[in-house]
């Protein structure tokens, strides 16, 4: 990558909202018309989306992973966590959103027939869904999804009918009573995949990373850290590295090799 040269497709776009549907309690799936991002985004990359008209309050953009890309449109899943994401989740079809992207480093593509497992928790399912849709042979894929409770499981189109899908809920309201990491532990016992891709809350990622590192299975995690700029200038989204020091989730991440990260 040459210094100062923009990454593929990376630019400032104003995208129109095509649809906005509910996919779980407090989760909206927005489809944005943005052909440039749809054609250049790699699974694991994110967009920095402006949530206020003025750009002054709320001041900062919200980093949101691309959940799917088709011809001229991209999907994002917005989890309403505060004032900013609430504003974004209310955008109606026809409205315009101001975004920067695609940003960050995405997942490494697996080999054509390599058996892989995707482990997602809550809204973390979004980038894994994008990865799944980009795979040549989705039938070889195990998808392990976890959520606190049934109502928080994302009903994302393209996930429900999947043969390799397993569900876990913390309260046992659907699927396995436990976590997605528990499901992975079972899969690693019976039929270990070559690669594991994970995205979700920090404790889940730490558990997944530990399991994979023990068994020497390649594992990539997509990390979420508080972010200000999203473009590598503020040093806000620091991720502690196993070798010491910090890297930027927005730039060296958000996808990391699990071995490179310092887990608490």
């Amino acid at each position: 990558m040459s210094e100062g040269a923009p990454r593929p497709g990376q630019d400032h776009y104003v995208a129109q909202v095509r649809t906005n549907i509910g996919v779980a309690d407090g989760h909206r799936l927005l489809t944005l018309i943005c052909p440039e991002v749809a054609q250049t985004a790699v699974p694991g990359q994110f967009l920095q989306i402006r949530v206020s008209v003025s750009g002054q309050d709320p001041l900062l953009r919200r980093p949101i992973c691309v959940a799917a890309a088709r011809e001229d449109e991209v999907d994002i899943v917005v989890r309403v966590a505060g004032r900013g994401t609430d504003l974004l989740a209310r955008e109606t079809p026809g409205a315009f959103v101001d975004l920067l992207g695609p940003l960050g480093r995405g997942f490494t593509r697996p080999g054509r027939h390599e058996p892989v497992a995707l482990v997602g928790g809550g809204v973390g399912v979004a980038p894994l869904h994008f990865l799944l849709t980009s795979l040549a042979d989705p039938s070889r894929v195990r998808v392990l999804l976890g959520a606190r409770t049934r109502a928080l499981l994302p009903r994302q189109p393209g996930l429900s009918g999947l043969e390799g899908l397993r569900i876990a809920t913390d309260d046992g309201s659907e699927g396995h009573h436990g976590t997605a990491a528990d499901l992975l532990a079972g899969v690693l016992e019976t039929d270990p995949p070559h690669r594991v891709y994970a995205c979700g809350p920090q404790p889940m990622l730490a558990a997944v990373a530990r399991l994979c590192i023990q068994r020497r299975i390649v594992c990539e995690v997509s990390l979420e850290e508080r972010m200000a700029c999203g473009i590598g200038v503020c040093m806000g989204c620091a991720v502690p590295m196993a070798g010491g020091g910090y890297t930027r989730a927005c730039r060296e991440g958000p996808v990391y090799d699990a071995r490179a990260v310092k887990w608490e």
Partner: peptide, 9 residues
Amino acid sequence: GNPPPRVWE
């Protein structure tokens, strides 16, 4: 630098 979180809106 400092440990995260480093920024808060």
